[in-house]
C-alpha cells in the first residue's frame, strides 16, 4: 500500500511539474495579453518533434537546447504576424485564431513528420534506475524531469521578481496601460512574452516527448488539461497554476493507482444491484476509469462556485 502511494506521488509530481511548465507559459501569456492561447499545447508538441529531429543528428542534449529556441521564435512569429492583427478584432476572434493555430500546427506536423509515432528516446546516460524502492524502480529520467521542472520554476520566479524586465512584465500584468504610458514598448514585450511562453512549452515537449510518446495527437492529450489548470489556478496567477498543476497531477496519479470504485462503496453500504440493471455502468464504475474526467469535473465545479479560480483575482 505504501509503495503504491509513494510511486503514485512521484508520478503525480512528474506529471504535475510537467503540466506546470506548460501552464506557466500559458498563464504568463494570458496575464499580459488577455489571450487564452489554445495553441499552447501545440507548441509543446512542436518542441517534442523538433527535439526528435535534432536528436537524430546531434543527440538529445542539443535538442533540449535548440528545440525550445526554435519553438520560441515560431511563437513570437505567430504573435507578430497573426495575433497582433487579430487582436483588434476582439476577444472572440483571438480565441478562435489560437484555436485555428492549434488545428493548423497539428496538421502541419502530420505533413512534415507524418502521422506515425516517432521513436524519440531519452539519452542512455539517463537510462538507469535512480533508486529502487520496495522492488520497484524509479527511472533516472523521471528524476531528471523533476529536476529540470523545478529549475525552470526557480529561474522563472527569479526573472519575474528580480530582473528589470520581470518587474516590467509584472507591472504590465496589472497595469498594461500605465506601462505603455511609461514609454515601454508593449508590443515588443508582448512578442517576447509570447515567445518565452511558447519556448517554455517547447521545453516541456522536449522532456515529455520520450516518456509520453511523440505523435500528432500529443497536443490534444494535454491541451485541454493545461487549460483546466490555468483556469482552476485562477487566470493570471502563477502560484495558482503551480498549485493546480500539482493538484491535478497528483489527483490523476492517485486515481489511476487506486483500485477502489463504486462496487466497494456499495459493498460498504451493503447494497447490490443486478448485472442487467440499465445503470450497470454506474454501479461498476472504478476510480481509475474516471481518472481522465476528474480534471474537467473539477474545472466545471470551480467555474460554477468560484469563477476566479483558486488564487485568481480577475474575472473575465
Amino acid at each position: 500500500m505504501l509503495e503504491v502511494f509513494i510511486f503514485a506521488t512521484l508520478n503525480g509530481l512528474v506529471t504535475g511539474l510537467l503540466l506546470f511548465m506548460l501552464a506557466s507559459g500559458l498563464t504568463l501569456i494570458f496575464s499580459m495579453m488577455g489571450v487564452l492561447n489554445f495553441a499552447h499545447a501545440s507548441f509543446y508538441m512542436l518542441g517534442a518533434y523538433f527535439a526528435y529531429s535534432i536528436s537524430q543528428y546531434m543527440g538529445f542534449w542539443a535538442g533540449l537546447l535548440f528545440a525550445p529556441i526554435i519553438v520560441g521564435v515560431l511563437g513570437a512569429g505567430v504573435e507578430r504576424y497573426g495575433l497582433r492583427r487579430v487582436h483588434q478584432l476582439g476577444h472572440v476572434a483571438e480565441l478562435v485564431f489560437t484555436f485555428g493555430m492549434a488545428f493548423l500546427i497539428e496538421e502541419s506536423i502530420s505533413f512534415f513528420w507524418g502521422t506515425d509515432t516517432k521513436n524519440y528516446r531519452y539519452p542512455d546516460i539517463l537510462n538507469f534506475p535512480l533508486f529502487t524502492l520496495f522492488g520497484q524502480e524509479f527511472s533516472a529520467y523521471r528524476g531528471f524531469m523533476i529536476g529540470i521542472s523545478i529549475a525552470i520554476f526557480i529561474g522563472l520566479y527569479y526573472v519575474l521578481t528580480r530582473s528589470r524586465i520581470g518587474i516590467i512584465i509584472q507591472a504590465a500584468i496589472t497595469h498594461p496601460h500605465t506601462v505603455a504610458n511609461l514609454g515601454h514598448n508593449v508590443p515588443l514585450i508582448f512578442m517576447g512574452v509570447f515567445g518565452v511562453g511558447t519556448a517554455l512549452a517547447g521545453v516541456a515537449g522536449v522532456i515529455a516527448g520520450p516518456v509520453l510518446t511523440t505523435f500528432p495527437g500529443m497536443a490534444a492529450v494535454l491541451g485541454s488539461i493545461v487549460f483546466v489548470i490555468v483556469v482552476i489556478g485562477g487566470l493570471g496567477s502563477l502560484a495558482g497554476a503551480f498549485i493546480a498543476a500539482l493538484l491535478i497531477g497528483l489527483l490523476q496519479s492517485y486515481a489511476i493507482a487506486s483500485d477502489v470504485g463504486v462496487p466497494d462503496l456499495l459493498n460498504l453500504l451493503g447494497l447490490s444491484f443486478e448485472r442487467s440493471h440499465p445503470l450497470n455502468d454506474l454501479w461498476t464504475l472504478t476510480l481509475p476509469q474516471v481518472a481522465p474526467i476528474l480534471p474537467f469535473l473539477l474545472l466545471v465545479l470551480v467555474l460554477i462556485f468560484r469563477p476566479t479560480g483558486l488564487l485568481g483575482k480577475r474575472e473575465q
Binding site: 487564452l36 476577444h91 480565441l95 485541454s224 483546466v228 474537467f296 474545472l299 466545471v300 467555474l303 473575465q316
Partner: peptide, 9 residues
Amino acid sequence: TVFAMISLG
C-alpha cells in the same frame, strides 16, 4: 472566457 471554459470542460 468563463463560458468558453465551462463549455470546454
